[in-house]
Amino acid sequence: MGIMRLGRVEVRVLDLEKSIDYYSNVIGLQLTARENGRAYFKAWDEEDHHSLIITEADHPGLVHMAFKVRFERELDEYEKALEQYGVRVNRVSKGTRIAEGQAIRFELPTGHLVELYHDIERVGNGLKLNPDPYPENLKGIAPPLLDHLLITGEDVQAATDLLMKVFDFHMSERVVTVDGEQLLAVWLFRTNTPHDIAIIKGPNGKLHHFAFNLGSWNDILRAADCLAKNNVAFDVPPTRHGITRGTTIYFFDPSGNRNEVFSGGYIPHEDFTPVTWTEDQLGRGIFYHMRELNERFTTALT
């Protein structure tokens, strides 16, 4: 019931062809469709038609994020619940984008557009009958799945409240001021991963990064090799997060949208007690080894 996962992100890119090459050959996603000014991708283990849409524009950043719900009727239920919560909801009609059914759309208090949907063309992963563990001819990093995204906004508390109260997101971790008075960042999940969405205090409407899942620390190292070979700009090379305990690399797509590959972390359940970090320990929370944030990590947003 309810939201199953972060189903897709749509990001703006400055140069469509360059970005198609990057997401196909360096990240190693499968290009499933393209139309005027847009391209659609899925990761190899995903069954839905796409999890990433890139749209050509004169500036980078997030167009929308979308969560997939278990049942179509839940769109009506969430539409009502959102309206009762005081949030305006719009309908996105079937066929607005390739392979997608209808969706409902609303804005978070942080200014980000969110869609909920159930209906999307199922193309499968080709691994359902006596399968091999992974398909042939994977390219680049080849993550199996889209994992999560991190957005920035001024009122972290208001966005957190909405996601927890309306959609029953659960909190895995949070960063608070030393006096405990103010929520500065939050990690929220509906799946059994430490986060499907995270929100950190910053300018409204901005994207900090979106992340793909990898299976192991060894895959992280291999991904870093692939990025170096392809001359991709690193933000932070392989390391561990204190928050989520996951291993990570941050790097930039050709338009400056930050990408992450993320592996590991614990498996939280609905009764998980949130982990709290105080602001003075944020460096250690984000980058457990170096214990400090670089300026680029906090200011380069799209």
């Binding site: 400055l14 500036h59 700009a233 930039f252 050709p254 338009s255 400056g256 930050r258 680029r296 380069a300």
Partner: peptide, 12 residues
Amino acid sequence: IKRGCRGGGCGM
């Protein structure tokens, strides 16, 4: 010169 995204996107 500050080094940011190197993709024309962040302005650093």
